[in-house]
Amino acid sequence: MPAAEAPAPTAPRCNCRAVEFLESSIGKKIMVALAGLFLCVFLLTHLAGNLILFLGGPAFDRYAQMLESNPLLPLAEGGLVVLFLIHIALAVRARLANMAARPVAYQVYKGKDARTPGSSTMALTGTLVLVFIIIHVATIKFQVGGAKGPDLFGHVTGWFHNPLYAGFYVVALIGVGLHLSHGVQSAFQTLGLNHPRYTPMIKALGAAFAILIALGFLSIPVYFGFIVHAPATPPNGAAMPSGPIGGAQ
């Protein structure tokens, strides 16, 4: 609990500067921002790879095999897990401290319209994205609830035949967009990059990035789930209807 952690900075400054930095409010935020920006780079590469789905089964499976056969893949995956863990763990700790910082809530809180839909829902969208990632990795990477086979294209598009699964993707990806709409430009501010000339540009680029990522990823479940049902055998057809969402936890 944050109350128990509070005394940590009180102690005489420890010799380890890194620990002091990570325990500090600003240090935590800087780490969350850095990890978040690296995760944005991953999102771009992931989107580029996923859009190969639109080139059809053989092209996508070739891409998947190329990725799988790369000996550096486990290293990249491990790095990705570490980035996620840093981002989530420190953001959760900051959130708990923030809740403790105002123990008695206002009866009326209105503010002065500085908050955005993205900024005021970061914890909510972050949680949604985390749940999404767990389900996504379980069903697509580890193929829980589906037959493991070489035909990854059929496996992926098969999942989207389930409207519940595709619908959840749509909701979660809108959440990703909202999260990024605040997160990207906010990360630059946290890293100390605020400049009268560049900040408006960073804000515009952050919004554009959020829209690009959200729409790019949304195109996949929308197309394969609601527009075209690619002629592919659904993975483990019997488990399809309610399996993916309920069964993944």
Binding site: A6, R13, S24, S25, I26, K28, A100
Partner: peptide, 17 residues
Amino acid sequence: RAAMDEEGFGHCTNEYE
């Protein structure tokens, strides 16, 4: 920074209120 955290203020999330 240390004094600020010690007082129990929250973390900035750049909402600019």
